[in-house]
Structure formats: C-alpha cells, structure tokens
C-alpha cells in the first residue's frame, strides 16, 4: 500500500476539521471496502482519520413518531438485529443479512456501506487501463469488455458500473435521509439525491462533499414498511454480490387493491434504483401477478443490456414479480 498517516478522531468536529486540513484524507470506519481498495492501489489516501471512536453508533427512535435514526458508525450486524429495524423496516434488516458475510457485517458501518464502491472489474483492478471512475477520461473498459455484472438502467457511455450495496437498495425504498456534517454545519440529503448516476462524471459517485462526514441515516415513519421484503438474486446459494435485487413494501386496501408501494432495485444501476414507474403502475390495481408483471415491464421498458448482461432485464422483471408476490402472500 501507499504509505499514509493515521490519526484517530475524538469527535465529529475534529474529524471534519482534520479532513479539511489535509488533502487526500479519508475517513476510516469499518474499513472493509477502503482497506481492500488501498491494497489494490485504487485508493491512495495520504491520511486516514479513524472515526470508529465517535459516538455515532446508536439506533434510536426519533421524537414525535417521526421514524428511526441510525448512527453512521452503527455496525451492519447490530442494525440488522435491532428490534426497531426488524419490526418497522424488515426490508432493511433483510438487506443487511443478505449482504456480505456475518464477519464483514460485524465490521462494516452503515456510513461506510453508503459509500461502498462498485465491484466493476475494470474499476477494481488498476491493471485495466480504461476506467473513467478511477482515471477520468481513460474510457470505460466494461462497455466493450466483460460486462455480465453491469448496469441496465441509468448508465452512460462513460460508465456502466453498478452500486453493489444491499443496504442502499432498502434505504432507497424507504426514502431514507442522510445526515451529514461539514465545515459549514449540518445538512440533510435525501437518499434519492445522495448517489448519482454516472453521466459524464462517473468518478463523482455521491453528492457528499469531500469535507463532509456522514453522521446518521434517518428512516421516516412508513407504517406499511412493517410488511416489506428484500429479495436478492445471486449466482450461488449465499455469499455473493447481487446480480439483481429488489427492496419492496406494499400497502393493500380492501379487495387487495394496492394503495401504496415502494420498490427499489439493486444490481442494475450506478445508484440504488427507485422504481417509481412500477410504483405508479401498481396504485389502485389488484395485487396479482398480472399487475406485478405490468409494473415490472413499465419500469424496465427503458432498460438497455450489453453483450453479457441482457439477461438482467428479464431477471429484474421476474424479481419484481417475486418480491411483490411474496409480500402479497404475507398479507393474506
């Protein structure tokens, strides 16, 4: 690895001033992704600020029934097992349990998970000359390369990488809000605006500023999210990144009419993909397979596949149908 200096931050403001003081500084949380990328020579920070001692590990109810706040340094495993999350947002708990392995979940923080970087081979391995994310202007190796795991929605000709996080998909379905602290104080970023589509700047993955620290994730109160579900489709029985995933919640009225729906897709885009077209398609319809398929078709109408990943279009449709069918079965 590139040599770096290492300091431990006592509190959030010390962390934020530390990062502003020296360029090429990164925060170190669980380190499960950053350390890997440093070993591969993809990330080469000159300084690491260890933030693991900051008091940001709580999962707590927001006053006035406004939802739940998760501290940015809460471990993935602790959040997954937390009763508030299991009861009110099972989709998030399931997403954590589907992600990584138990040991990595014990280390990984939710703040770090938000910033998890793509598993695109061309990004991950500097041996590949082309990657606009790693080396802006160099091109996209995946476009004409091996692109089985790549994006089918929202991609650009600059980048077809996907966001690998399971948690982010659940957060997208739940309309989470990311709380950050910077030199100018605190601000809130809705999850939909947190991650970016690649466009012409795939190297900029989020709207978090380099000198900002994620302090918490707020989950708004969504009563029907108590019946929500995360479906992860992967290449082996366990322990693999999603080729497609679906986070979904359904509210059913009388006669199984859908009154509200939340759907987000993973493994298909540069950011967790909120499936608003599908959601719109569902409202007012009867919850059955035909409705689900129509919603899936609507969402994937704009999808575009490449040499090795066109199967994801049909797989994503089927996954939406399965996730919604599972939720409907839970209701009856």
């Amino acid at each position: 690895m590139n040599p770096f200096t290492y300091i431990k931050a006592r509190d959030a403001s010390q962390a934020v001033s530390g990062i502003a003081a020296k360029p090429q500084t990164k925060f170190l949380g669980g380190g499960t992704n950053l350390i890997d990328l440093m070993k591969m020579g993809v990330e080469t920070p000159a300084q690491l600020i260890d933030i693991t001692r900051l008091p940001l590990t709580q999962v707590e109810e927001l006053p006035g029934g406004k939802g739940v706040r998760i501290g940015a340094l809460a471990r993935n495993s602790d959040v997954a097992e937390h009763s508030l999350i299991q009861q009110r947002y099972p989709v998030l708990s399931q997403a954590f349990l589907a992600g990584a392995s138990p040991q990595l979940r014990n280390m990984a923080t939710v703040g770090g998970n938000l910033l998890q970087r793509t598993r695109c081979y061309y990004f991950y391995d500097p041996a590949f000359p082309k990657c606009n994310k790693r080396n802006p202007g160099s091109g996209c190796g995946a476009l004409e390369g091996y692109n089985r795991i790549h994006a089918i929605l929202g991609q650009s000709d600059q980048c077809i990488a996907t966001n690998p996080s399971d948690m982010n998909v659940a957060l997208a379905a739940l309309d989470a809000v990311v709380r950050v602290q910077g030199p100018k104080g605190e601000r809130e970023i809705p999850i939909a605006d947190f991650h970016r589509l690649p466009g012409s700047t795939p190297n900029i993955e989020t709207n978090l500023q380099p000198d900002e620290l994620i302090t918490a994730i707020d989950l708004p109160a969504i009563p029907f999210a108590a019946r929500s579900h995360y479906l992860k489709v992967r290449d082996r029985a366990s322990y693999a990144f999603a080729i497609v995933s679906v986070a979904a919640a359904l509210e059913l009225g009388a006669d199984r009419k859908i009154t509200a729906a939340r759907i987000a897709l993973g493994g298909v885009a540069h950011k967790p993909w909120r499936a608003q077209k599908a959601e719109k398609e569902l409202i007012g319809k009867t919850a059955d397979e035909k409705t689900f398929r129509a919603a899936a078709e609507a969402e994937l109408a704009a999808a575009k596949g490449y040499k090795h990943n066109s199967f994801k279009i049909e797989l994503a449709k089927r996954s939406i149908v399965r996730a919604l069918s599972t939720l409907t079965a839970m209701a009856s």
Binding site: G31, T32, I35, D36, K39, S101, P102, Q103, L104, N106, M107
Partner: peptide, 23 residues
C-alpha cells in the same frame, strides 16, 4: 487478503473477525 475466504479468522471477545481486514 481481502476478507473473502475466511482462513485468517480470529476471535475478539468471542466473535469471529477477519485478521486480514484489521491494519
């Protein structure tokens, strides 16, 4: 070396952790 295989596992307070992921 990247936390995938599990052969570097050690225990910390009884919990399994990956020693290749801890600088």
């Amino acid at each position: 070396g990247v936390g995938v295989c599990g052969s570097c596992t050690v225990l910390e307070n009884g919990k399994a952790v990956r020693s290749c992921q801890i600088p």
